[in-house]
């Protein structure tokens, strides 16, 4: 392991370590989902858990998403703390009712009497040519439904702390991990997502965005894998004398409006870089929040949004690269705003 103080983990390993430490701490925590046990999760988020905790606490399920996600809600209502994985966010269509009509609403409809400490994990994102049914982000869709906390980590340190925070939360938390930052041995990834991760247990609070790069000329609001593309763009722009402040939202619900507003008040320019669909979604929400506060913020140029421009994610590599915003798109957009 080398020097403990510098230990680095991939995001996948950090997530499973967070789960493992909570399973050690609380016998009510268990994990279930498709291929989470023997396989360790298709994207590695539950790696090693079966060997350590056994099949009673790390359970492979049938391909019955309505049944096992509903079961997670039912078990949580009885005081268990299930972590349930659905392999791809794209598959939620087959079980949406259990999520948006039950998991999201039962606390409210009970007048706060029911607690639902369930964590629903899922893989998001494109960039590896898996086409329209395996490449979406969709966190904006779930953030739109009241009653779900929405967590979207961009790196291993945050991923572990937010997993532990999620498991300890008495509310349903949807935890979205981007495939292209998990540090898998079989998919190219942004190595910046592999970070130092302390061995001890710790939490990263929800509702606190992180300024991952300070700057004065423009605020770039982003999240998940797009943080890494944004950082690449910011570095290139820095050499041209453009100072970009990059904000990693980390959670959509709750959303840290203050960090966004304070930054835009300083830079007077806003760009949002997102991998979800453009219209009616996350990027529009961020812009609306700034627009609602124009009494205290001056904008020196119109805001810009980068996102998937309202088409399904295409398969062909040049098409996918064109559909999903890249570092160069961010760079060009910001240059245009500074012109």
């Amino acid at each position: 392991m080398g020097n403990e103080n510098n230990r680095e983990l991939t995001m996948a390993a950090a997530i499973s370590e967070g789960m493992a430490q909570e399973m050690e701490r609380d016998e009510n925590v268990f994990v279930m989902g498709e291929d989470v046990a023997k396989y360790g999760g298709i994207f590695g988020a539950t790696g090693g858990l079966l060997d350590r905790f056994g099949a009673d606490r790390v359970m492979d399920t049938p391909i019955s998403e309505t049944a096992f996600i509903g079961a997670a809600t039912g078990a949580a209502a009885e005081g268990m703390r299930p972590v349930v994985e659905l392999m791809f966010v794209d598959f939620f269509g087959v079980c949406m009712d259990q999520i948006y009509n039950h998991m999201a609403k039962n606390i409210y409809m009970s007048g706060g009497n029911v607690k639902l400490p369930v964590v629903l994990t899922t893989a998001i994102g494109g960039g590896y040519n898996d086409a329209a049914q395996h490449s979406q982000c969709l966190y904006g869709l779930f953030a739109h439904v009241p009653g779900l906390k929405i967590v979207v980590p961009s790196n291993a340190y945050d991923a572990k702390g937010m997993m532990i925070e999620a498991i300890r939360d008495d509310n349903p938390v949807m935890y979205f991990f981007h495939k292209g930052i998990m540090g898998l041995l079989w998919m190219a990834y942004f190595t910046g997502s592999t970070t130092h991760v302390p061995e001890e247990s710790y939490t990263v609070p929800f509702g606190k965005a992180k300024v991952v790069r300070e700057g004065n000329d423009i605020t770039l609001v982003t999240l998940s894998q797009m943080v890494h593309k944004s950082m690449q763009a910011a570095e290139t722009l820095e050499s041209d004398g453009i100072s970009v402040e990059v904000i990693d939202l980390r959670t959509l619900v709750p959303l840290d409006k203050d960090t966004i507003l304070n930054s835009v008040a300083k830079t007077n320019r806003l760009c949002v870089a997102d991998e979800d669909y453009l219209s009616f979604g996350l990027s529009g929400e961020i812009v609306a929040i700034v627009a609602e506060n124009l009494d205290s913020i001056d904008l020196t140029c119109p805001v810009k949004r980068l996102a998937v421009k309202d088409m399904p994610i295409p398969y062909s590599p040049p098409l996918e690269n064109a559909a999903i915003p890249q570092s160069s798109d961010i760079e060009n957009t910001i240059r245009g705003m500074m012109a």
């Binding site: 009510n28 268990f30 009673d56 309505t66 049944a67 096992f68 996600i69 509903g70 079961a71 997670a72 809600t73 039912g74 078990a75 949580a76 209502a77 009885e78 005081g79 268990m80 299930p82 009712d97 259990q98 009509n101 039950h102 039962n106 009970s110 029911v114």
Partner: peptide, 24 residues
């Protein structure tokens, strides 16, 4: 006790409640 306005929605959650009893 809990119930739902959605047809067939209680059965998965019943499985979860029963799973919780078994685990406990």
């Amino acid at each position: 006790f809990g119930c739902s306005g959605i047809i067939g929605a209680g059965m998965p959650q019943a499985c979860g409640a029963a799973l919780a009893a078994k685990k406990k």
